[in-house]
Design a protein around this nucleic acid. Structure first.
Lengths: 160, 160
DNA sequence: TACAGTACGTTATAACATAACCTTTCTGGC
DNA sequence: GCCAGAAAGGTTATGTTATAACGTACTGTA
């Protein structure tokens, strides 16, 4: 009953994303629980970067119950471990990954006008980042790349 | 007396950095006050990334008085406006810039072992970031690039 | 069923950052 | 020098983001 309640009160989740989550968990030996899936579904339904506390509010509204911050942070940790969600460091927000094909390094284009975030992937950039690290005797692990500016849609009509 | 007290209780500041700060303020029409200079001096003396609250503690110890968070945040805003200090987005810390020659975009190499941060500058990288933005119809304003890993010093002796 | 390991819930608190309001200091014009 | 306006700084309170500590429940294995 509890479980059923949670399931019906979760955001709809396309089969594509569910299969992706299942696959990633299988790869990494992680468990895909209803609570985790519900958070992931909410983030996908949202389709934009959300703060942890915005996410709590959305889930509380959906599920009609209180949710502690720690609960959501744990789910976010899980989703980042499995590469299903990224954290935007400069905005302290979280965004469901929309590059389902494989785990990867991502770069982000953040529009300061409409708030939209575009996730891009450039092998060339990753190569160059590695070279820069090498040149400094640095062994890179991962890189945060977040480009702020104005997206094409918002730039139309704006001067310069 | 108050002023004198503050001056004697500030971290030592090499003439080089003082001149840099004066120059940047002249360019931007900003005022270089003793309080601002004291925060800058403390960060240079520290030589590593510090959180705003660590910085408060350091300044309180140095000046033997209480300092409100807002005060330090305002000084940090000033120092970032003038390009004397950078914020490390992924660590939520602040670091005095060590590229005095000119205002610039920076990239950072963050060592997860010793905490050291190297500030580097790559025109090639900046060009590539612009190209990536262009390719997505995006007008870039500035870019956060933070590479996490292990620095050369720490990597010595470590496996892989 | 007993056990080990992971996930989840609850309460409290730490860490990071800003709002609103007022006082002080600086600067330029008289 | 003196005043008015602007910028900087101080104080109090509060908002926002994230984690600690500890106990309970679920899941898979023997």
């Amino acid at each position: 009953m509890e479980l059923a309640k949670r399931l019906v009160s979760a955001a709809p989740l396309a089969a594509k994303w569910r299969r992706l989550a299942e696959g990633r968990c299988a790869e990494k030996g992680e468990r895909l629980t209803p609570a985790r899936l519900a958070v992931y579904a909410e983030m996908l339904a949202c389709g934009r970067p959300v703060s942890a506390y915005e996410l709590i509010a959305l889930l509380e509204q959906r599920q009609e119950r209180k949710i502690a911050p720690l609960t959501v942070y744990r789910h976010l940790d899980f989703l980042m471990r499995t590469g299903l969600v990224h954290r935007l460091q400069s905005a302290q927000t979280y965004l469901a990954c929309d590059h389902p094909h494989h785990a990867h390094e991502s770069q982000f284009l953040l529009c300061s006008s409409c708030g939209h975030v575009d996730e891009v992937e450039s092998r060339g950039l990753e190569t160059l980042l590695s070279q820069i690290a090498d040149a400094h005797g640095f062994r890179p692990d991962n890189a945060v790349v977040e480009i702020k500016g104005v997206c094409g849609t918002c730039a139309v009509g704006e001067p310069n």
